[in-house]
Simulated scan of single mutants.
Amino acid sequence: MEYNTTRNELILPEYGRHIQKLVQHIKTIEDREERTKAAHALIPIMAQVNTNLRENGDYKHKLWDHLFIMADFDLDVDAPFEMPDKEVLNRKPDPLPYSQGKFKKKHYGKIIQNMMDKIDDYSPEEQEVLVELLANQLKKSYVKWNKESVNDDVIISDFIELAEKDVNFKDNIKLVETRNILAKPKKKKTNRKNRN
């Protein structure tokens, strides 16, 4: 018996072991013309096995690339496309430059900090509404991040620290309840009479 643990590793698992064995067999054909015919005959079979590639306009090019990859870039045939460069395929992408910036309280996020910087751009009436909305968002972010209840005084203190300016809070400001933040949305009830 032949077990998967004793077999060679699948290079492209989406094609399966039989296609990979066919590719290995094609590599053993000595006559270049016969080898080329066999490779051209294998491409339509690969297209049937991996039907997702047909959604792309250049799927034949990808099939030939996959054939060369399964052959470990060691297949001398007359192909309609050039063999891909092994180094290019194995090269790791360049790291993305993340802007770290200054965060006093990372769990509130950069967008909240940017919004706080814009408070002065609004009229006093609009500032009052914006401050209340931002404070509620701070509380939601805090509760979602820490998974625990928090006192409104802590949120207001954090708000003042993040805003780095005097902020006028309404005397009767009431932030959203923690249980409302953590509550799971209720499923809509369907009326069984209307299903028919």
Rank of each mutant, 00 (worst) to 15 (best):
I43S: 01
K186D: 08
Y15N: 08
K92L: 15
E9T: 14
R35S: 11
K193S: 11
I112G: 05
Y142C: 00
G16F: 03
L53E: 12
R17D: 05
N191M: 06
L130Q: 10
L133I: 03
L10H: 01
L133T: 06
K188W: 05
D120M: 03
A183N: 13
S157H: 06
D76R: 06
R32I: 12
K147M: 06
N146R: 04
N172P: 02
A135W: 08
A135R: 07
E125L: 10
L67W: 05
N56W: 14
S123E: 14
E128L: 13
K104P: 00
Y122T: 08
Y59W: 13
K118I: 09
L22A: 10
E132N: 11
K139V: 04
H61G: 07
F159R: 00
D31K: 11
T28K: 14
Y98P: 05
I181Y: 06
I112P: 02
A41L: 06
K106E: 13
K165G: 00
G101V: 09
T6V: 11
L130T: 10
N50M: 05
Q24F: 15
I160P: 01
T36A: 02
E9S: 14
G101K: 05
D117Y: 10
Y98V: 13
I69M: 03
K27G: 02
E164M: 03
H18R: 06
M115G: 00
S149E: 08
G109T: 05
N52Y: 08
E148I: 08
P44E: 10
N52W: 03
Q20V: 00
R91C: 15
E30P: 14
L130R: 06
V88L: 12
L182R: 11
N56C: 12
I26P: 04
E2A: 13
D117R: 12
E177D: 11
K188H: 08
V150M: 03
D94V: 10
A41N: 15
D58L: 09
E87R: 13
E2R: 15
K170L: 05
S99F: 11
K184E: 09
W64Y: 15
N194C: 13
H18V: 06
D152M: 04
E128I: 07
D120C: 04
L175W: 06
M1Y: 13
A39L: 03
K92P: 03
N50Q: 11
P13S: 14
S99T: 15
P124I: 02
N180A: 12
L162P: 09
S157M: 04
R91S: 15
I112L: 12
R17T: 04
K86R: 08
N146Y: 07
I181Q: 01
T5G: 11
I119S: 02
N146V: 00
H66D: 14
F103Q: 14
K62W: 06
K187N: 13
N90I: 09
G101N: 15
V49R: 02
L138Y: 04
Y108T: 08
E55Y: 13
P93E: 14
K104D: 10
V49S: 00
K165Y: 00
V167K: 05
P84I: 05
L162N: 13
I29C: 09
K62L: 09
K106A: 09
F68T: 04
L89W: 10
L63K: 00
L134N: 06
P13D: 08
P185I: 07
I181F: 05
N50R: 07
I111M: 03
